[in-house]
């Protein structure tokens, strides 16, 4: 029983973080049908901002807010630098420019900050733990679960009830039609990038809260996680991304408990082979999104 509770808390906290990462990626993909390879670097930006403002006397929540805002700015910059100039030209071109932008940000961090990991300020609560059913549980897992629930709720409200959300869903379903009905294309795309940056910023703080330091290559793992989660869940469906995040967390946690040390090293190879298999079985992912797949 204790074990079951611990397992569930692990899956939920990891899954919450994964779901938020996937949501940020799929939001942009849904509208543009283009993958943002620089997504992981938004998390890196949030981490470095936190590191840089760490010396100031501001309260931690203000620092965290600054970090999230910087991640949103970086998200908008991705749109302006990597996507807008080549968006209409070819899929390959955008994939390459976003890959180039990701390299650009990573090397900027190498050049201007340091190749070595840097510490980030974290409040006490991240390192405390509480007793749940007789097992010590890290507070940061609880914080992650709460943050994921709150953000997913907010996000659902935004997408279902506000004009912006409805316009974004319309654009994801049929971009040309949405434009004809008066949805401003560039504004919608920029908002998607900003929201994607917001999610990356929050999840970045939670993610770095687990590790405690930030390094230039920190974005790769979240990017890969977001990829897998989206592919499992369905690249076009927002619910699918969330579902994919939780499924992936379940698989990862199970593999962590069951695989022997020797095989655990190959965990990434297992999960990525799984992605390839799922894409072959259902190229659309587990949940189908809106039927129109036209690129814009």
């Amino acid at each position: 029983m204790d074990f079951a509770i611990q397992f569930i808390i692990n899956v939920l906290s990891l899954g919450g973080a994964y779901a938020l990462m996937a949501l940020g990626l799929v939001l942009v993909y849904g509208i543009l049908k283009l993958v943002n390879f620089a997504y992981g670097e938004l998390i890196m930006v949030a981490g470095y901002t936190l590191h840089l403002v760490g010396g100031s006397p501001l309260p931690w929540l203000v620092m965290a807010a600054v970090a999230v805002v910087m991640a949103m700015v970086a998200g908008l910059a991705t749109d302006y630098v990597a996507f807008r100039p080549v968006r209409a030209k070819s899929v390959t071109a955008v994939l390459i420019t976003s890959f180039a932008f990701s390299t650009l940000l990573q090397n900027a961090a190498l050049l201007f900050i340091s190749p070595r990991p840097r510490s980030v300020p974290l409040p006490e609560i991240f390192s405390q733990s509480v007793m749940i059913a007789g097992m010590p549980t890290p507070m940061r897992d609880i914080i992650t679960i709460v943050a994921a629930v709150v953000l997913l709720g907010l996000f659902a409200f935004l997408m279902q009830k506000t004009v912006l959300g409805i316009a974004m869903r319309a654009a994801a379903t049929n971009f040309t039609m949405a434009r004809m009905l008066g949805v401003p294309a560039n504004l919608i795309i920029s908002s998607a990038f900003a929201i994607s940056g917001f999610l990356a910023g929050v999840v970045g703080i939670l993610w770095i809260g687990r590790i405690g330091t930030v390094a230039p290559a920190i974005g790769l793992e979240p990017l890969l996680i977001a990829f897998i989660a989206c592919v499992i869940g369905g690249m076009r469906s927002l619910q699918g991304a969330v579902l994919g995040g939780f499924i992936l967390a379940f698989i990862d946690t199970t593999l962590n408990y069951t695989l022997s040390q020797d095989l655990l090293k190959f965990r990434d190879a297992f999960t990525f082979s799984l992605v390839i298999l799922i894409l072959l079985w259902r190229p659309e992912g587990l949940m189908k999104g809106p039927s129109s797949g036209q690129r814009t």
Binding site: V91, L95, F227, V231, M235, I276, P283, R295
Partner: peptide, 11 residues
């Protein structure tokens, strides 16, 4: 398109 690129990245 995107699915091919993601799988090649996975590979």
């Amino acid at each position: 398109d995107a699915a091919a690129v993601i799988t090649s990245f996975a590979l």
